[in-house]
């Protein structure tokens, strides 16, 4: 196990180098560059050339790319992401941290809800496979799978925010007049988070249910479950204790794809409901061409994604020895 883990960790190194290198090079190859605004479209310089040169030396931009890359990497390792470009510079790390907090809790709630609903639904579908009810559920799940998240979000909004019900707030995380702390504040936050969480969970539900159903169908055909039924073990116990223990393996593999979402967040939902999360931050930084923020966000997301895959692999290996041997 230890040797396997070490090998698996070593495999992350080239990925990490590739990730940071690509991010760094993209930012250097991007159109414009830090001094584009100092030069007229006609090619005449608004600022004396010596001053530009002095600035380049000051910022270290005249050094070879490889030196710049290593320097950037060193600062990144100490979480020094620099400041945002723009009129009022803010440390990038602070913005990323604030956005990360919002996204993480939002996504965690959604993923929990998604798994909590999707896995039992998939198990139920597998247990009742072929019945009319199961077929109807399957068809409904297919339609939900085809529904764009944006349509789902606008529909929910129309129903609960501006439509006949009008019970939930439409945008943001806090009402301006609500207190920050205490029960009232928590209730306010809950109200604001309901629709985004529901939206993300519903969008992911069909995939999870389908995965769980497929995994369970494979298991249910096996003799040990027939034997369990013959011994008179109740169906619920057979499904959720005997079969699910093995049938859940493919879902654990899915964890690797879910973890990065805990960090990226859903750009769509965050934008739709105006939530100050990572997705929103990324989209805004990209539109504003705020390269330090873009670089920070993409490296953070990439590292999180790698960690997710690592976690999924380790959990899978703990559950199933055969994976390790492969």
């Amino acid at each position: 196990m230890r040797a396997w883990l070490l090998r698996r960790l070593l495999l992350c190194v080239p990925t990490l180098v590739g990730l940071t290198l690509v991010t760094f090079l993209l930012s250097r190859l991007a159109p414009g560059g830090p001094f584009a605004s100092a030069i007229d479209p006609e090619g005449a310089s608004r600022v004396p050339l010596q001053e530009i040169e002095a600035m380049r030396t000051l910022l270290g931009l005249d050094r070879p790319l490889s030196v710049q890359y290593l320097e950037w990497l060193r600062r990144f390792a100490t979480l020094d992401f620099g400041t945002t470009l723009g009129i009022a510079p803010v440390p990038v790390a602070a913005r990323v941290a604030a956005a990360l907090r919002v996204t993480f809790w939002l996504q965690l709630a959604s993923v929990t809800l998604m798994l909590g609903l999707g896995v039992p639904l998939g198990v139920w579908c597998a247990a009742r496979v072929g019945t009319r009810r199961e077929k109807t559920t399957g068809a409904l799940l297919f339609l939900l799978h085809c529904t764009p998240m944006l349509l789902l979000g606008t529909l929910l909004m129309k129903l609960f925010c501006v439509g006949p019900l009008r019970v939930l707030p439409m945008i943001g995380l806090h009402s301006p007049d609500a207190p920050d702390h205490g029960l009232a504040g928590a209730l306010d936050l809950l109200k604001h988070a309901t629709l985004p969480v529901a939206c993300i969970a519903l969008a992911g539900l069909p995939g999870i249910a389908r995965f769980a159903r497929a995994g369970m169908l494979d298991e249910l055909a096996k003799p040990f479950l027939v034997a369990a039924a013959a011994r008179g073990i109740p169906e619920r116990r057979r499904l959720f204790v005997h079969a699910l223990r093995v049938g859940i393996l493919p879902i654990v593999a899915l964890l690797g794809q879910i973890v990065p979402f805990l960090v990226v967040g859903s750009v769509t939902v965050e934008k739709l409901f105006s939530l100050p999360g990572m997705g929103q931050l990324a989209a805004e930084a990209i539109l504003a061409r705020d390269y330090p923020t873009v670089m920070a966000v993409s490296v953070v997301v990439g590292v999180a994604a790698m960690a997710g895959f690592l976690l999924a692999d380790v959990v899978q290996a703990l559950l199933d020895r055969r994976v390790r041997l492969a």
Partner: peptide, 21 residues
């Protein structure tokens, strides 16, 4: 390995990031 690096990122995010440049 290249495929894995690509799979690491949520697709939409990847497109967005490259779009910045």
């Amino acid at each position: 390995r290249v495929v894995e690096v690509f799979l690491c990122f949520p697709q939409l995010f990847l497109v967005l990031v490259v779009f910045a440049y």
